[in-house]
Design a protein around this nucleic acid. Structure first.
Lengths: 191, 191
DNA sequence: AATTTAAATGAATATTTGTTCATTTAAAAG
DNA sequence: CTTTTAAATGAACAAATATTCATTTAAATT
């Protein structure tokens, strides 16, 4: 047998791609730079990924799955509504804050010529438990009877914006800011 | 005298650039395609803009100014707080909804290697009246005493997200959705 | 130890794409 | 009507960058 493909190499390639996207944006992503950053030869990239499109789509899927895993825990969904809301909100906030590269990558992916609708929809399936939680909140008269996507937008939108400001250096996030942000979010969706 | 530079041509170039960015994302923007879309020769582009960087930065500035002009009207700032909030919110919402290309362009600009910090800061100066309005709301005990940027994030974040969903086809915006969204936003920031 | 197989290499190649420039066109002035 | 001037053209050029491939390397099997 020959030497086997290395899983750690895939991680290195993903990591390198992420780092470069954060630094220079999506438009500046070069395969040769990815290879150099991952400490492999350019040609090796093409052993692991057919081409740039496949690399980018695979990375998107990997990031999206990891991200959703970090804040969608089926166990949380049975907590009392407010408790569940706080828990998921905090996990989502911290994940977004601590993985800004992933968020930046995902945002840019949506606007890029690399996006494959099927790949995107595959990832969104994983959000079902969140929608179910909102439905339960409405039944228990704790959450406003408005469109679920509107509620989602109201919760995720500000978090994205806050993290963007934090990254740009305009707003320094700390416990106090986080507490305020959670309060604003809950006041918004609560009945 | 020779034939004069054509202002309409600049508009055509800006329009073409916007359209292509909306279609293929920032990474896919090609100068030759911009020229074709604007129905001019490639070389003509370089009479109006030194290079791709200048084209993109000039377009950003033009879009940002037009956008801010559409929702920051000094006259609105003297209305009673809730009235001013509703007015500015609606203008901002409609502007974002009706000019998704501009929003898409601006978002991608921030993550691109084309961004010039000075150009970005120049545009942000124009938001001062909004911050002043929030300060007055706090003094009058109508708006929560939390960080202004947090309030801004809470208002602009969901709008960006809603329009993104609308564009992607997931959420259809209508008067009822808009009314709900405004209510959610106000409940969030009101004292 | 010899052999086999696939990973790994990175220089070479192919392609894409930003920019230039010799030439043409059209508007205004004399 | 001729001359002048700058816009407009688009093929040619230059640079950047994705991909390939002949060759080497290392792991596993015999």
């Amino acid at each position: 047998m020959p030497k086997a493909k290395d899983d750690k190499k895939i991680e290195a390639i993903f990591g390198a791609t992420l780092k470069l996207v954060l630094k220079d944006g999506f438009s500046g992503l070069r395969m040769s730079d990815v290879a150099k950053e991952a400490r492999i030869a350019t040609g090796t990239l093409y052993i692991y990924f057919r081409d740039k499109h496949e690399l980018i789509n695979e990375l998107y899927l990997s990031l999206k799955k990891k991200s959703i895993d970090s804040y969608v825990d089926p166990a949380d969904m049975n907590l009392p509504i407010k408790k569940a809301f706080d828990t998921v909100w905090k996990k989502y906030f911290l994940n977004t804050l601590q993985n800004p590269e992933e968020t930046a990558f995902i945002e840019q992916y949506y606007r890029s010529p690399f996006l494959k609708v099927k790949v995107k929809e595959e990832a969104y399936q994983l959000l079902t438990p969140i929608y179910q939680l909102l439905e339960r909140g409405k039944k228990e008269q704790l959450i406003k009877h408005v469109d679920n996507d509107l509620l989602i937008a109201q919760i995720s939108g500000p978090i994205a914006e806050i993290v963007r400001m934090h990254q740009a250096g305009g707003l320094r996030v700390n416990d106090s800011i986080m507490k305020d942000a959670l309060q604003l979010a809950w006041d918004s969706v609560k009945k």
